[in-house]
């Protein structure tokens, strides 16, 4: 599942793996727009034909981060008719349903969204998701807003932040630009950030640094090229 962003795909050996759990975190709750956008973009990247994207979220996340707006999804290049939505009062029921959906082998991607660190989402729950995704080959994206990293069986863990876009004429905001930080990756090096711009027509990411003027990384984040982390792959 390639991003379409050459440096990123090169780093990940061709992109994200299907049939795996991928985690998307935002440490800052203010980045929920960017995080939800990234999840939707990954869903679009993994969409095959008309296979629906199933988006499950807790009521708490919806209240805080706003509800799904179909016109906005269409503006990102997707077809809202292929999105199935469900909201849940708590994370327990949501995770149970997510496992059931993953076993059904119909959908092209499952997005599971909640706020904070729910107790229900632990190593066991993430393992269930990974196993269920492995059975049917559907990618599952666990989106957690304003959350801290906890041990999970996720294949990759991402942190997302919004970044200034390339202004269009008359100082209008341009295409969505995100800072994607790979926090963890099983069986590979992690700890690197990329600037990626979403191309709504091609439905793919592209290198934001190449497509316009250089954009500096947001304050508080250094370019991690120099201090490359090496992680040991376990399991």
């Amino acid at each position: 599942m390639a991003f379409g962003h050459a440096p990123l795909d090169g780093w990940l050996d061709g992109g994200l793996k299907r049939a795996q759990l991928h985690e998307i975190l935002t440490e800052n709750a203010k980045d929920m727009g960017a995080a939800a956008g990234f999840a939707a973009m990954l869903g679009l990247r993994s969409q095959q034909g008309d296979g629906p994207i199933v988006w499950l979220r807790t009521r708490d996340a919806e209240r805080h981060g706003g509800r799904f707006h179909a016109a906005g999804f269409a503006a990102l290049g997707g077809d809202p008719a292929t999105v199935l939505l469900a909201t849940f009062p708590n994370a327990v029921g949501m995770l149970r349903t997510a496992v059931d959906v993953l076993r059904c082998s119909g959908p092209s991607a499952v997005i599971v969204e909640c706020r904070g660190n729910p107790r229900a989402f632990d190593l066991t729950a993430s393992r269930r998701l990974t196993l269920a995704a492995g059975e049917t080959g559907i990618p599952v994206f666990m989106l957690r807003l304003g959350a801290a990293a906890v041990p999970t069986t996720a294949d990759t863990r991402w942190s997302v932040q919004a970044a200034p876009s390339h202004a269009l004429e008359a100082k209008a905001p341009g295409y969505p630009v995100l800072v994607l930080t790979l926090l963890r990756r099983r069986g590979g090096p992690a700890g690197k950030s990329w600037l990626a711009e979403w191309d709504c027509e091609q439905r793919c990411f592209r290198d934001a640094a190449l497509s316009g003027a250089m954009v500096s990384l947001p304050p508080g984040r250094q370019d991690t090229d120099c201090e490359e982390k090496r992680l040991v792959a376990i399991g």
């Binding site: 706003g66 707006h69 016109a71 906005g72 503006a75 990102l76 969505p176």
Partner: peptide
């Protein structure tokens, strides 16, 4: 309800070369 037969309906397609003009998350 998703169980109902989806009716034929088209969502407005964004014009090419334009950034998204509607947000993905809406506060209501």
């Amino acid at each position: 309800p998703a169980i109902e037969k989806p009716k034929e309906a088209s969502w407005p397609r964004p014009a090419p070369g334009e950034p998204p003009r509607r947000p993905l998350q809406l506060f209501d």
